[in-house]
Design a binder for these strands. Structure first.
Length: 550
RNA sequence: GCGCCAAUAGCUCAGCUGGAUAGAGCAACGGAUUUCUAAUCCGUAGGUCAGGGGUUCAAGUCCCUUUUGGCGUGCCA
């Protein structure tokens, strides 16, 4: 918010000076604090065009700006940077704005009028959610919160593959365990069957409801019953895990339901009408290579069944039909082969390919005592989301997943996550929040009241760290916008960690509540209450609880 | 073979879309506790940003190339 004000001051200046310019310059916070509060490269970029040396141009601009209110100084440095310092009074005024904004601070209309659909997790409904879903869940849910905060109209969706081959196998797996309960054991255990304990549990559950009744059904009906039962139960299981994880979906989109509505046939006929299909070797093909894919793909197999690509095309058509401007798929890294097909089909159907955006979350290694925990779904050896929440808690898990940029591999150190100590960055942030809470309590006890909107009082805030805290808070709105637009929630976790750190330093160095200096205490309370609020906002964007007590 | 992602301190990672002397946390070492909650703070040490070339006032950041690692390239989902 402050950078944009400085930018517009610069633009006015350039106008006044009658210079030739574009608005492509930047206003940044220099790494080195000796270079001022903010700096700009505007003179470096526009020197040539105006036939001046960079430093000469910088000098002209700096002289004008320095005269303005709120600016303490504007100095030319290095090859032609202009470094600004603003007055404390300016920061005190900004602090008031932050305080008044309360929980609205950081909110903006940046993404106004843009409808976004965010699809994530979309795990198969054949078992409990695992750690891969844990990363996707933390990432997707936080991104949704962040994009909402800056004004996007966000809709979240979990796509349920409740039709097709995997579900057949699920039904058969339950059936095997069910028959085991009735001593009807197969000689051979099929290798493709799901072997996790949850299958046994589901079979037992079904058995306690139905007993041996299901043997009176035809095999087809019995399997149908098992499938239906298992799907419903696993859905409940997944939903409960996500509730514990503080992840919420606007919609669970069922593939089965889509199929019933005939969207598959619709998708196929659209492609056929567009002249994009042909028959070869008893299968129906999509000429995707003519639409940007590396080769053609099969749509209908020789056995008459559609490949998985068809429902996926159909599903994505619904995303376009529902009027979304930005369609974000959050996928694992093993899906990029898939996306080229999908893009080709959107292309063939003349749907705007640019609306479709794919985020690949890279792989996760779970580390235990420095060793990678090997996981295998087939053998039933998986670490579930529930396990993870039991072990480290939802807050810690979410933080760890969010704190890495999505494109990077992630090592999740279980030992570190379990530590309730200073090694764990989650507690560092929560502790800052809790400390401020207890300071407020202390102030109340000492009958020091928090005064509102009193500029004179805020003049007491003169320490460097106090001004730095205000500057840091002022960054928050642009951090949230950057996190939203780059689809990078880790910018928020990094930010809240830094802000918390600054507060801890402040706390260690200065006494905040002191009955001997009522006004100073009031000013400081005003400051830290704002800090507390910003920490709470940031944590909320990550779906992490801001605790009042540790 | 082709495609995608990565490579920054001993370890795990940031680096604000190209800015000035590359930053945190952990681990190591030295210090602070009759406190406003020490789950904290202060200090020391740690780097050829994988290698090479290019673009320009300026490159960890953009382009090319080599190397290393992960993944993909099904009439599986």
């Amino acid at each position: 918010m402050i950078k944009s004000r400085i930018s517009s001051d610069i633009v006015k200046c350039l106008d006044n000076l009658g210079l030739d310019f574009q608005k492509n310059f930047t206003v940044e916070i220099p790494n080195n604090p000796e270079h001022g509060d903010y700096s700009t490269n505007v003179a470096l970029l526009h020197a040539k065009k105006n036939e001046l040396k960079p430093r000469e141009l910088a000098e002209k601009i700096a002289n004008q700006i320095a005269k303005k209110r709120n600016y303490k100084s504007a100095e030319v440095a290095g090859p032609g940077f202009i470094n600004f310092k603003l007055t404390n009074g300016n920061y005190h005024k900004m602090l008031q704005k932050i305080y008044k904004a309360g929980s609205r601070f950081g909110r903006s209309k940046h993404g106004k009028d843009k409808k976004v659909i965010l699809e994530f997790i979309s795990a198969n409904p054949t078992g409990p959610l695992n750690v891969v879903s844990a990363r996707a869940g933390a990432y997707g849910d936080s991104l949704a919160r962040i994009m909402k905060k800056v004004g996007y109209d966000v809709f979240t969706e979990f796509y349920v593959n409740d039709a097709g081959n995997q579900v057949e196998i699920l039904g058969e797996s339950i059936d095997i365990r069910y028959r085991e309960l009735h001593s009807k054991v197969l000689e051979e255990f099929p290798p493709e069957a799901y072997q996790g304990d949850y299958i046994k549990e589901l079979a037992a559950q079904l058995n306690s409801i139905e007993g041996s009744k299901l043997f009176h059904y035809t095999e087809k009906d019995r399997l149908e019953k098992m499938k239906k039962f298992a799907l419903a139960e696993i859905h409940k299981l997944q939903l409960n895990s996500l509730i514990r994880y503080n992840v919420d979906f606007d919609n669970w989109m069922s593939e089965k339901k889509l199929r019933k509505e005939g969207v598959l046939e619709e998708a196929l006929s659209y492609l056929a009408e567009a002249g994009c299909t042909y028959e070869k070797e008893e299968a129906i093909w999509f000429n995707s290579s003519e639409h940007g894919d590396v080769k053609d793909r099969v749509l209908i197999k020789a056995d008459g069944n559609p490949t998985y690509l068809v429902p996926d095309i159909a599903y994505h058509i619904t995303k376009y039909n529902r009027g979304f401007d930005i369609i974000i798929d959050i996928l694992g890294p093993d899906h990029h082969g898939h996306v080229s097909k999908l893009r080709a089909s959107m292309n063939a159907l003349e749907l705007d390919e640019n609306k479709l955006e794919v985020v690949y979350l890279q792989h996760i290694n779970l580390l235990e005592e420095g060793e990678v925990v090997k996981m295998s779904k087939r053998a039933g050896k998986i670490v579930t989301l529930d396990d993870l929440i039991d072990e480290v808690g939802a807050n810690v898990a979410r933080y760890f997943f969010i704190d890495r940029k999505p494109s990077a591999h992630l090592d999740f150190d279980l030992e570190l996550a379990k530590k309730r100590s200073n090694e764990n960055p989650v507690y560092y942030c929560q502790y800052a929040h809790a400390r401020i809470h207890s300071l407020s309590k202390k102030a109340k006890k000492a009958k020091i009241k928090l005064k509102k909107f009193d500029v004179k009082l805020l003049r007491k805030l003169t320490k460097d760290i106090e001004i730095s805290l205000i500057k840091k808070m002022l960054e928050f709105p642009s951090i949230v916008i950057a996190a939203a637009d780059n689809r990078e929630p880790h910018r928020v976790s990094g930010y809240v960690h830094e802000l918390s750190g600054m507060f801890h330093k402040y706390y260690a160095k200065y006494q905040i509540v002191n009955s001997a200096h009522i006004e100073l205490s009031q000013a400081r309370l005003y400051l830290i209450t704002s800090v507390q609020n910003v920490i709470a906002q940031a944590l909320d964007l990550m779906g992490i609880k801001a605790t009042k007590k540790m």
